[in-house]
C-alpha cells in the first residue's frame, strides 16, 4: 500500500513538469516568438507521450505555413481531425496555398475523421467549380459575385473565340472579355495585311520582300488566334483560383488558430 502511494506521488510530481501550458504558447504566438515557441515544443520529448504535444506541434506547423508537414502529421494521427475549428482554419489556409492539398485533407477527413468537412463551404465550392450542374444557392452573397464572374468565363468556349479571331482579328479578344485588346489586334493585323497585299501586288508572290511581309502578317494573324484560345484558358484558371481564394478568405475569417 505504502509503495503504491509512493509511486502515485512520484507520478503526480513528474507529470506536473510535463504539462504543456497553452497560455504560455498563446503568449509566444502573440509576441511572435517563433524560435522560443519551437524550443518550448521541442523541450518535451516525444517519448513523454503527452497527448497535446502532437496537437501543439501540428498547430505550430500550420502557423508557420509548413502545410506539407501538417498534412503528413494529420494522415499519421487523424485524431486531430476532431477539432472542428482547427479544420476550418486549416482548410481555409490550405486552399490559399494549394487546391490539391486541400482536396487531400478533405479526403483524409472523410476516410479517418468525422467527415466534418463534407458539408463545409470549401468542399461544396470545390465541387461547384468542377461540376456545372450543381446549384450555387448555398453561397453567401459576397461570394456569389465572385462565382458569377467565374461562371461567365467558364461558359465561354475556346473554339468560338478561335473562330471569331480567324474571321475578324481582335473579335476573339472581345469575346473572351479583353475588350481593350480588340482595336490593337485589329489594327496590327490590318497594317501587316496591307503591307503584305501591297508587296504581292507590286512585286509578285515570289519576291523576297513579299515573302517577308506575308510571313510577318501570317505570324501575327496566327498568334492572335492562338493567343485568344490560350488566353481564355488562362482566364478560366485565374477566375477559378480567384473565386476559391475568396471562399478560403471567407471561411478563415474570424477563425483563429490560438
Amino acid at each position: 500500500m505504502r509503495i503504491k502511494l509512493f509511486i502515485v506521488c512520484l507520478m503526480v510530481c513528474v507529470s506536473s513538469y510535463s504539462q504543456i501550458s497553452s497560455a504560455f504558447i498563446k503568449h509566444l504566438v502573440v509576441c511572435d516568438l517563433n524560435t522560443e515557441h519551437n524550443s518550448y515544443l521541442n523541450s518535451f520529448s516525444d517519448s513523454t507521450n503527452i497527448d497535446s504535444l502532437g496537437y501543439f506541434k501540428l498547430k505550430f506547423n500550420l502557423l508557420n505555413r509548413k502545410y506539407d508537414v501538417f498534412l503528413d502529421n494529420v494522415s499519421v494521427n487523424p485524431d486531430f481531425l476532431n477539432d472542428s475549428s482547427l479544420l476550418d482554419y486549416s482548410t481555409g489556409h490550405l486552399l490559399k496555398w494549394s487546391i490539391l492539398k486541400t482536396k487531400s485533407l478533405i479526403q483524409i477527413d472523410s476516410l479517418f475523421g468525422r467527415n466534418y468537412l463534407n458539408n463545409s463551404l470549401i468542399k461544396k465550392s470545390l465541387l461547384l467549380v468542377e461540376d456545372k450542374t450543381l446549384s450555387a444557392d448555398f453561397l453567401p452573397s459576397s461570394l456569389r459575385i465572385h462565382f458569377d464572374e467565374f461562371e461567365k468565363t467558364r461558359n465561354k468556349k475556346a473554339w468560338v473565340g478561335g473562330v471569331l479571331a480567324t474571321v475578324l482579328p481582335g473579335a476573339g479578344k472581345l469575346y473572351i472579355g479583353r475588350g481593350k485588346s480588340f482595336l490593337g489586334s485589329l489594327m496590327v493585323n490590318a497594317f501587316y495585311g496591307a503591307t503584305a497585299y501591297e508587296s504581292i501586288h507590286k512585286f509578285g508572290i515570289k519576291n523576297p520582300y513579299s515573302i517577308l511581309t506575308t510571313g510577318v502578317f501570317s505570324a501575327f494573324y496566327l498568334s492572335n488566334i492562338y493567343g485568344t484560345v490560350f488566353d481564355l484558358k488562362r482566364i478560366k484558371i485565374e477566375k477559378k483560383k480567384h473565386f476559391l481564394y475568396e471562399v478560403a478568405d471567407y471561411q478563415s475569417s474570424g477563425i483563429y488558430l490560438y
Binding site: C9, C13, S39, S43
Partner: peptide, 28 residues
Amino acid sequence: ITSLLVFICINALVAQTNEDTNYENSML
C-alpha cells in the same frame, strides 16, 4: 512527509536540468 520530500527533490532536480547552458533554452 516522505512524499513532500520526494516532490522537493524532483523540483530541485528539474530546476537543475533546466539550468541548461544551451542558448535557446536559456532564452526560453
